[in-house]
Design a binder for these strands. Structure first.
Length: 205
DNA sequence: CAATGATCATCC
DNA sequence: GGATGATCATTG
């Protein structure tokens, strides 16, 4: 990663404490992704999202993967087919980047990227989780939501800090201020995507 | 504030 | 050691 960044005249930080998105930014630049912070795919003409995936030396994901914000204001779609989460995950170019926690950004190593489209089974798994979250969100039962829910997809806070607030609708239909939440893919799920690539039979099970 | 990009810090 | 909840930077 350090060599790639230097080629692109991008600075190489000593750690991620204040540069959490650095790997993703460098890869976007390196691969010619266009969108920046816009709500569009990284490769608009291809409809492909780019996601880096931190993995350890064995190729096992170390972190969950952010997908998108969860709308808590009643604007969430009713059908999975229309879900923003689903669109974002319909075509993903995964770029594994190795380095255990503590490995400096410049020392991280890029692995073999692979283009992924959810299989029928994966789509169904994501759909089940999403529909359960949809129920809680649309019923306004936000207090029931935490990161323990969901087999593949989970919901976690997604704000500048714990004081961040967004508008939501509670269980009696009232507008309330609530913590912004996002959808994330569990590391256990992304691990199954890498399994077929790793050559490790155990990783596929 | 919300979208993009994620990892950190701490608890279990 | 892994997962949860918190946090950091940047852009429009």
């Amino acid at each position: 990663m350090g060599a790639i960044a230097r080629d692109l005249d991008i600075g190489v930080p000593d750690d991620f404490k204040r540069h959490k998105g650095w790997v993703g930014q460098v890869m976007e630049h390196a691969l010619g992704a266009e969108s920046g912070s816009a709500a569009a795919p990284d490769f608009p003409r291809l409809g492909v999202e780019l996601k880096t995936l931190p993995v350890d030396a064995r190729g096992v994901p170390l972190e969950s993967t952010y997908v998108c914000t969860a709308p808590l204001d009643g604007s969430m779609s009713t059908r999975w087919e229309d879900a923003w989460v689903r669109r974002k995950l319909s075509h993903v170019l995964w770029v594994p980047v190795s380095g255990a926690r503590g490995t400096s950004p410049g020392e991280r190593e890029v692995g073999a990227p692979f283009l992924w489209q959810p299989s029928v089974e994966e789509d169904a798994l994501l759909r089940d989780d999403w529909e359960a979250f949809r129920e809680l969100i649309l019923l306004g039962e936000l207090w029931q939501i935490d990161a323990h829910l969901g087999e593949a997809l989970q919901m976690r806070p997604k704000g500048a800090d714990s004081k961040s607030r967004t508008w939501a609708i509670d269980d009696e239909g009232r507008w309330v201020q609530s913590m912004p939440m996002g959808f994330y893919l569990r590391a256990s799920f992304t691990r199954t995507l890498l399994g077929a690539e790793s050559g490790d039979p155990e990783a596929r099970s």
